[in-house]
Write a protein that binds this DNA or RNA. Structure first.
Lengths: 157, 157
DNA sequence: TCTTAGTCCGACCTTATTGATCGGAGATCA
DNA sequence: TGATCTCCGATCAATAAGGTCGGACTAAGA
């Protein structure tokens, strides 16, 4: 339950990778294209492209067209929160349908509903958590499980 | 995003109602049938029945068959956590697919994945939150909002 | 004891969302 | 100026959720 979509997963991976390349040690400022990310993480190319388009539309990354083109972060890593990333892909956070009552219609259970208030409380806690965590937190103090992986490049299955 | 299913929603409403009736003031120990809950909250009868069956199978409630039958809580309200309810309906908590590596197969991105560890951290936080909250917490101090919405009823688009 | 009404229970179908894909438009470098 | 590489929008298939139907059981009432 409460599983985020694969597209959101891909978005996190891609942003982490872009941040590592751009803000990292090698060739800072370099743009990174879709193909590079897709091959690195075994993500379907076209699907990843669509994810990156969405992120660009939400102004989290900037697209550079043409040969030698690609994507670059629009802001610094510590200014991009996990909540912003996830909301760009999956829409606004909402534990239940009645979280944000959209135009006119509301759920039939509203008037007798006793669980709305506590659920919103849970939702706020999660929102607070996701907003407090930035892309920077995903890179700095997280000793990845298999570091460097110099061999992973040519690994066959 | 991170929206729980309607079945989970219905499960929470039903359990809250059962707890209010059984543990409440009027006729303690009385069992409450599916129809009563469905009409009270405008839930599709058959769908609610299915939800209650699932809850019974997970030993959160007990079913009493025959006329005057219905459901009753298997434990006290403060011994049933929100996590238990949600997991009964939607399966174990898992932010991402690789949360609980199931037999043999794992995601192709694992070896290069830098986001797994921080995501599991987020997941743990949410799990802790849901485990700390019980059905009892949903009843006590929640004066329903009763927005009333006198105009919203007849609004046409 | 028998009937009968009311309940729970399991399998099935429809609809919506996600996952994945294809061809076209625009821009840059040689 | 040409060609190639990139991003971009619309389209299709697969999966899971939402909802529905009929059958089996139990227990109360005559």
């Amino acid at each position: 339950m409460l599983k985020i979509s694969k597209k959101a997963d891909y978005a996190l991976m891609a942003l982490q990778h872009i941040a590592a390349v751009q803000f990292g040690d090698v060739t800072p400022g370099r743009v990174v294209n879709t193909k590079e990310i897709a091959e690195e993480y075994n993500i379907p190319l076209e699907l990843l492209a669509k994810v990156l388009q969405t992120l660009a539309k939400h102004a989290l990354i900037e697209s550079h067209n043409g040969p030698k083109g690609g994507y670059a972060l629009a802001r610094r890593a510590h200014q991009i929160t996990i909540a912003q990333i996830l909301e760009s892909i999956e829409g606004p956070l909402g534990i239940t349908d009645c979280s944000h009552d959209k135009d006119g219609e509301f759920c039939m259970q509203r008037e007798n509903c006793h669980i709305r208030t506590p659920l919103l409380k849970v939702q706020d806690s999660i929102a607070q958590l996701l907003n407090s965590m930035t892309l920077q937190d995903m890179m700095g103090g997280t000793p990845l499980i298999t570091i460097q992986s110099p061999t992973a490049q040519g690994v066959e299955r």
